[in-house]
């Protein structure tokens, strides 16, 4: 078994543990490459039976249209049950304040919608595509990570996790976040995508897009951001290295149109994945830790 086989085996084992230990698990899907890989893994884990996990998309309303189209094609192709819960509904129902500014990101507000949906459906396990190498707070997370009432992560009193004996026992009000691809790097994900011939949204490959330059990053012009007269709009070749909201994900200049070209660019990039593309991690030194304490993925 090479390293990709080993990572796949670990992920499939975790997905089967999740199916065996929980009554109402759900797979969280964002339209990005990591959760797409999770869907393919869940198909393989239960083949020839169907994946038992419904798929939930917490829709911020600030999506790339390509990601939404891809989502709908993917669930249709595999016959998956899709649940969509919208942040815009949560904002109205809970009287939340819409974020302001040039890039009004609803990224942090997603946690409210996610926690409401967990309660609405009674989900006891949420499977996500978080990876430990993405970010330093994520590097500390267990494979089966408990969330208390209110959805918060308790990083200083995490359950011991021995060998592959994942403990999914929970009490009333608790739920578990499951991270099957915790040990995958960005390159591992891409190598797996190539090996398994996994389709991705076209955003991941070079295309023409109107962008503005902001803090040395390329941000797509969209209805969700406020372009100012002083902004220089350029039409250029870009691809996305991560796919999140249009308001908090930056594009990278690229002419890579094949998967080999993309892998080559990533392998040689001097910048980390989130560092190059995420505007939401740079809020503070503990940006991710703080969001996770409030229920974020």
């Amino acid at each position: 078994m090479d390293h990709i086989d080993q990572l796949e085996a670990e992920a499939i084992y975790i997905l089967r543990e999740t199916a065996a230990q929980f009554k109402k698990p759900v797979l969280l899907f964002s339209g990005g490459k990591d959760s797409t890989v999770l869907i393919y893994l869940s198909i393989k884990a239960f083949y020839p039976a169907k994946s038992i996990f419904p798929v939930m998309h917490v829709d911020t309303g600030h999506n790339f249209i390509e990601a939404l189209e891809f989502r709908d094609q993917l669930v249709e192709r595999f016959g998956l049950k899709l649940i969509v819960r919208k942040v815009s509904d949560t904002i109205i129902n809970k009287g939340l304040v819409e974020p302001q500014g040039k890039f009004p990101s609803r990224n942090a507000l997603q946690s409210h919608t996610l926690l409401d949906a967990i309660q609405e459906f009674g989900f006891d396990a949420c499977i996500g595509g978080g990876r430990r190498d993405e970010e330093k707070a994520r590097a500390k997370e267990r494979i089966f990570s408990i969330r208390e009432n209110g959805g918060g992560w308790q990083p200083y009193s995490q359950r011991p996790e021995l060998w592959d004996l994942y403990n999914g026992r929970i009490n009333e009000g608790q739920n578990i976040r499951v991270f099957p691809i915790s040990n995958w790097s960005e390159l591992d994900v891409w190598n797996y995508i190539r090996r398994e011939k996994i389709e991705l949204p076209s955003l991941y490959f070079s295309h023409n897009r109107k962008c503005i330059r902001y803090n040395n990053r390329l941000i797509a012009v969209s209805n969700y951001m406020i372009a100012e007269d002083t902004d220089d709009i350029i039409d250029t070749h870009v691809r996305y290295r991560t796919v999140g909201d249009m308001t908090c994900t930056a594009a990278v200049a690229s002419t890579a149109i094949t998967i080999d070209e993309v892998i080559n660019e990533i392998a040689n990039s001097p910048i980390s994945e989130r560092g190059e593309t995420r505007m939401d991690d740079n809020i503070s030194d503990a940006g991710m830790e703080d969001r996770k304490l409030k229920g974020y993925f």
Binding site: H3, K136, A137, K140, N183, L187
Partner: peptide, 30 residues
């Protein structure tokens, strides 16, 4: 690089396990 939590950085100690990754031509290391 390794102390991923705020309190760990403030106190200069490691409290819980963190995972880091690197590769050589031969191996992926966890």
């Amino acid at each position: 690089l390794t102390d991923g939590l705020r309190s760990e950085r403030q106190q200069g100690i490691t409290i819980d396990v963190a995972y880091k990754y690197f590769t050589t031509a031969k191996r992926k290391y966890i």
